[in-house]
């Protein structure tokens, strides 16, 4: 069952002024329930605008957005309900923290949903746990935490709303390697545990190929492709042509192919590369 469906969505910035610009151009796409979809694209390719359509922060200039089969801009839909269903975590989400304690900040979303005290408490603790925020941190001020911790608190703030769809805009941007790893692996664990549909926007191909089952490539406001990871990277030449990067290891394999050593065109993780190289060597073709 498709949980997200976009039909011919077009969005124009500052429509009707000299600054008019098309950010999203006639995008149609469906995302299945439980899918972990990576979204990549150049700066200004419209990915951030696209994801803001999914929880109704941005109203499309033309076209329709369906969440759970429901047109979110039809009159009888409360847009806030849509936002609880499709949780959106912005880039540099730690800038949204404002409460005195981490606990209170995480409970802001659930409180807005009008849940009971006990329900809020269980949700806050569960969200904190899945983001690796220890009990003692809950009573600290969010402004005293490290960058990586703040980011995880902000994520927990959305997760505590228990959305059906979790949309993350560059959740690991600007963090050090340890912080990156900790945020990304927790998102992946969360996905495995609860089967939530996840859309992950990232600049880093390495991150996307490690976690995503499907990849959505945006180019100049249009969908370049939306297919399983293997198929996307089989088109690596085209991807490089539209100015995107492929994982480092894919580049190495491409160079090898140019030198006459063909290991296959579906290699984008170091593990698979290792396997193939060993296979190749076992056949004794390297002197």
């Amino acid at each position: 069952m498709s949980v997200i469906e976009l039909k011919n969505v077009t969005y124009k910035y500052s429509a009707g002024t000299p600054f008019e610009a098309v950010a999203v151009n006639n995008v149609s796409l469906t995302v299945e329930k439980g899918e972990f979809c990576g979204i990549i694209g150049h700066t200004g390719s419209g990915k951030s605008t696209l994801i803001q359509h999914l929880n109704g922060l941005v109203k499309p200039t033309f076209g329709e957005v369906y969440i759970d089969g429901e047109n979110i801009w039809s009159k009888d839909v409360d847009i806030r309900e849509v936002r609880f269903k499709a949780g959106l975590v912005f880039q540099y989400s730690e800038h949204q923290l404002f409460e005195e304690t981490v606990y209170k900040d995480i409970s802001y979303g659930p409180k807005n949903m009008g849940l009971s005290e006990e329900e809020i408490d269980t949700r806050v603790r569960a969200a904190a746990e899945s983001m690796g925020i220890s009990e003692e941190l809950l009573e600290r001020s969010p402004f005293d935490l490290s960058g990586g911790q703040k980011r995880r608190v902000a994520l927990a703030g959305i997760i505590a709303m228990e959305p059906e769809i979790l949309i993350l805009d560059e959740p690991a941007a600007g963090l050090d390697p340890i912080g990156r790893e900790s945020v990304l692996s927790r998102i992946s664990e969360y996905h495995k545990k609860y089967g939530t549909t996840i859309l992950l926007v990232s600049h880093s191909m390495e991150d996307i190929v490690r976690f995503a089952e499907k990849v959505l490539v945006m180019n100049k406001g249009e969908v370049f492709c939306h297919s399983p990871t293997d198929e996307v990277f089989a088109r690596q030449d085209e991807i490089i042509k539209i100015g995107l990067d492929v994982p480092q290891i894919t580049r190495v394999i491409m160079k090898l192919r140019q030198k006459g050593i063909d290991l296959g065109s579906d290699i984008y993780t170091v593990e698979r590369a290792k396997e193939r190289i060993l296979e190749y060597m076992a056949k004794g073709r390297i002197c």
């Binding site: 803001q52 929880n55 922060l57 806030r80 936002r83 609880f84 949780g87 959106l88 975590v89 912005f90 989400s93 800038h95 949204q96 802001y108 979303g109 807005n112 949903m113 703030g157 959305i158 709303m161």
Partner: peptide, 16 residues
């Protein structure tokens, strides 16, 4: 710009 961003972020958490 920043106000816009923060407002969107809080709206995404159900702020009214």
């Amino acid at each position: 710009e920043e106000t816009d961003k923060i407002m969107s972020a809080q709206k995404a958490r159900g702020a009214n």
